[in-house]
Nucleic acid binder design. Structure first.
Lengths: 357, 357
DNA sequence: CTGTTAGCGCCTTCAG
DNA sequence: CTGAAGGCGCTAACAG
């Protein structure tokens, strides 16, 4: 309610109120209306809008006044038509509500906004090539200037790469992949930290509850774990692969809990760690006294699990942000196109689940 | 790589390759190019594109072939300019990664897509009037045809309502609010179920760990709880207000855990319940033997907490979906504008945290 | 410093 | 059933 009532005499001069059914909403004013009201040409209005220099301050003020009086809203379609720019970035994302993807989406949106872009979103419900293509096409219809993909899965990434879409694309939240430019966290380093931390507590070896094998992140964490064990000349037990869910952590965790040789477990993410903690509790195996557990991600709940979970923190927001940074650089030609990767280093957050006080 | 190489003789006839710096990317083809290749007028191309009847099947086929040969992509800006429709819906959302909001965003996106809309997102980092207005304005710049707001907070909702934006708007994930049309869950009913369930287990009364008072959801759950206690003639203890986080649940939970009178607690959401469970565990109070706990939301992790959490399930995806439904109905004039509300009924999911087996 | 003239690519009339 | 005009609202060149 800051603005007083609408215009009257100075309103649009175009054929008023074509009675097309309902309310006959007062046609939004256009640049020409503003020009008329300010007593200048529509071109001058355009100039103040785009902050071109060479507009006398006084003229500028008159125009601004007219714009606000008319409650003028530039027509973005008209502008894009002539500038051939949509100022829009697209996000392709999996239909998940996991903490990681959701955080990245927000990081992306924020960074894009700060870089002057709008953000359009297209989610996919299944990780299939077809679904990815549909999502990308939906984005292309909107003429997005670039795409950030939050689809940390092999097939989806390949699909992305194969769609010679002519739109620059970067995948975020994936540690590595040859197919497209990628921004993620150094999963190997994170897994090494986790494993080494456990080894440092005196465990002979460390078990691994991994994510699904068709996820680059899962494979990389698995290899970091193997690497750390090898470096310490510890024997590597067979890894169990879950599906990132607490449920899978619980179910596989029951086997782990039943095995007296298991004294330390590195989990591919915090959700699975939660499931494992419950399985251990049910089996009466105390954490960390009998079994130590480390997760990956540091979701906000990690610090409040029973016991508080030691984990590897990754900054999802930052990953999203640098994804946009890379994309914008590529789109503006500052960087040549081509597989490219940016790795962020995660941090170990030591809590009670891994260390006896 | 499905399509063979680009055009040659039939390509755009416009001033070729204006050497504007880089690659001199082959100008995307336009309707006119397709028309030429198909030997028709650009108008006919438009007709097949918009599926107007009155195009001879054979002509239509020729046009389609030309389109795919040229890899033609309609220009959405040009189309919006003339049709005065953006086919876009906007989402205003808080910059959170909580399960609820994230689920609703996905639900909205999916429903919007199915209804033929693109989706543009604008997140806000602070729940202030200014931030909400900025987000709405960003969406208006894009000429969205409607806005779905995922901002379950008093000030934000009022801000939304006060922006006589001329854009139809509905808020989702809020049980109630006079200011704008709203879609949410019946929080009162949910809270009654939770409280009654606890009472049914034989507890004399039920304590409440609520959400922040400036959230309608929190207040409604609080009143449902009070209502159920009153109906059972049980005394209502003072409620403790957290901030939805596990941390706050833990901190307030320590007080609850220290109070021997506390035997049953209804939490405003599952995260706070998680924190409470840990506080109880630390205090050595067994759940559910000594204290019963019920949450709200049924996040995927709820079933894997220690012990598995009894909670009130709400279908966030469905809420998002019906928000879009309402919005589309309003935007198309099927429903007159005006505060309107749709309530979904939540369900009690009984697990171990509340019942002694 | 400001105004004039052309389109941007498409859809909506209206003629044929 | 198809084609020819006209214009959506704006910005980029040019004049002045």
């Amino acid at each position: 309610m800051q603005q007083s009532s609408p215009v009257e005499s100075t309103g649009p001069v175009t054929p008023a109120g074509r009675e097309s059914g309902r309310e006959a909403a007062p046609r939004a004013s256009v640049m020409m209306d503003v020009a008329r009201l300010a007593g200048v040409s529509h071109q001058t209005v355009s100039r103040v809008l785009n902050e071109h220099a060479n507009v006398r301050p006084e003229t500028r003020a008159r125009v601004l006044a007219a714009m606000s009086q008319l409650n003028y809203q530039p027509n973005s379609a008209a502008r894009s038509l002539v500038t051939r720019r949509s100022n829009t970035l697209g996000i392709v994302t999996i239909d998940t509500t996991l903490f990681g993807p959701a955080s990245m989406v927000y990081g992306i949106e924020k960074a894009a906004r700060e870089a002057g872009y709008f953000v359009s979103i297209a989610s996919i419900s299944s990780l299939t090539t077809v679904a990815v293509k549909e999502a990308v096409n939906r984005l292309r219809e909107q003429a997005v200037e670039g795409i950030v993909a939050v689809v940390p899965h092999d097939e989806a990434i390949l699909a992305l790469a194969s769609i010679a879409s002519g739109v620059v694309t970067v995948a975020v939240g994936v540690g590595n992949s040859a197919a497209v430019p990628v921004v993620g966290v150094d999963n190997v380093a994170g897994a090494v930290m986790a494993t080494q931390h456990l080894l440092d507590q005196g465990h002979r070896t460390v078990h691994h509850l991994s994510g699904p094998v068709d996820y680059p992140d899962a494979r990389e964490r698995d290899s970091g774990w193997r690497y750390a064990l090898a470096a310490a000349r510890a024997e590597a037990p067979a890894a169990l692969a879950g599906d990132w869910s607490a449920r899978s952590g619980y179910e596989l965790g029951r086997d782990l809990a039943a095995d007296p040789d298991v004294t330390a477990v590195f989990c591919g993410n915090d959700q699975m760690a939660l499931g494992l903690l419950r399985a251990l509790a049910e089996a009466g195996r105390r954490v960390p006294a009998e079994v130590s557990v480390v997760g990956f991600d540091d979701v906000p709940e990690a610090a409040y699990m029973i016991p508080p979970l030691t984990t590897i923190r990754q900054d999802f927001g930052e990953v999203g942000r640098s994804g946009v940074g890379l994309l914008v650089a590529m789109a503006s030609g500052e960087r040549t196109y081509g597989p490219e990767r940016i790795m962020h280093t995660p941090t170990l957050i030591a809590r009670a689940s891994s260390q006896i006080v």
